[in-house]
Nucleic acid binder design. Structure first.
Lengths: 199, 199
DNA sequence: GTCTATACGGAGATAGAC
DNA sequence: GTCTATCTCCGTATAGAC
């Protein structure tokens, strides 16, 4: 297998595992097992665990930016109405949940703000998203703030494991419905690792 | 020193350290040093690191609930206008930042949702806050969701270390101002561990 | 390019003294 | 009630073979 492809494969698995158990709570051995390779090879390929984590964050951030830019492009080309921009961006965000680990590994990076290396990259990434929405998407600053807040609530609900544990609880069901709306089924399918629309 | 007092002292220090470096990223030795006692004593007093963390979460949750209940009580007794409730609750939330570690250790618990024990307590705690705001404070459900979203953005900005690193960056300054508003100086003073209003 | 073996440090927990 | 000493396991990283 070519190095670039294997690299991406490992990053994908690392993203999922880091996203679930965090930077400090994840061992390179767990990532190696998920990717089906040996632990020293993981380290060999990325230098250190920290460098691997930063690459995971960068990859996640890249995917998020691509997803947002695509929505903005559709708006600019007139393929979607301007007043739907916010809803479409929200949908694009939730759709990323299917690629399990993207949003969670980013969130784990945010929570790791005390770490010199990771923290710096996390802050820069967060602001990159802020500027993208404010400048490229031309959304009013306070609406961007509000959009980001909704995103952080979604991240927290995912991280806390709510999608797998809310059934039977009235308050949890209401909160999940309010937070995800029509996109709730997408989330639930992603949570149980089944495809969003079973054949 | 009486056991109860020493216990609370250790919990306070543990809260600060866990809040900063997370559950997995924190050693019982770090907590012991912060509290000025020996590492085995920390373990001895709380059984395991996990039990200690759960107690830290419970303590943080308790303080948050007390703060919110006090605001609700003021509204119910007519001491503050009903239409100011949201703003007062927000202020009460931000004020908790001064007791460094409260909001952050809770957030670290939320992010630890995959852990059987911690995750369960975190979900229960999150929903407890949701119900408190919806039922006791009688805030419309979607406003509660929105309030929680704002809280999660605040938590994320704190965790990512934004208060200590936004100066000089135009976007970061704008985002911090929008997110904290008039409460920004409270946050900055708490961040640099100086009193909110220097004498 | 990928593995096995392993060195080395660290962390949680226990034993037992004072 | 609190400490020192220490056991034991685990995790990252390196060395070196194939």
């Amino acid at each position: 297998m070519p190095a670039a492809e294997r690299r991406e494969l490992i990053l994908g698995h690392a993203s999922a595992v880091f996203g679930r158990t965090g930077y400090a709570g994840t061992t390179t051995e767990q990532i190696a097992q998920a990717a089906g390779i040996s632990q020293p090879y993981v380290v060999r390929m990325f230098g250190t665990k920290e460098k691997l984590f930063v690459e995971v964050m960068e990859r996640a951030l890249g995917k998020l930016i691509v997803a947002f830019r695509e929505v903005i492009r559709l708006r600019d080309s007139g393929e979607i109405p301007a007043d739907e921009l916010g809803a479409r961006l929200g949908q694009a965000y939730v759709d990323l949940i299917e690629d399990r680990g993207i949003l969670m590994s980013l969130m784990q990076g945010f929570i790791q703000g005390h770490d010199e290396v990771i923290g710096q990259r996390a802050r820069a990434g967060f602001l990159e998203i802020y500027r993208l929405l404010r400048d490229e998407a031309a959304i009013p600053a306070d609406d961007v703030r509000s959009f980001l807040a909704d995103g952080m609530l979604i991240n927290t609900l995912l991280a806390i494991g709510m999608p797998d544990n809310f059934e039977g609880d009235e308050a949890a069901t209401e909160l999940m419905t309010l937070s995800f709306g029509a996109k709730l089924d997408t989330v639930l399918c992603a949570a149980s690792e089944r495809p969003a629309r079973p054949a």
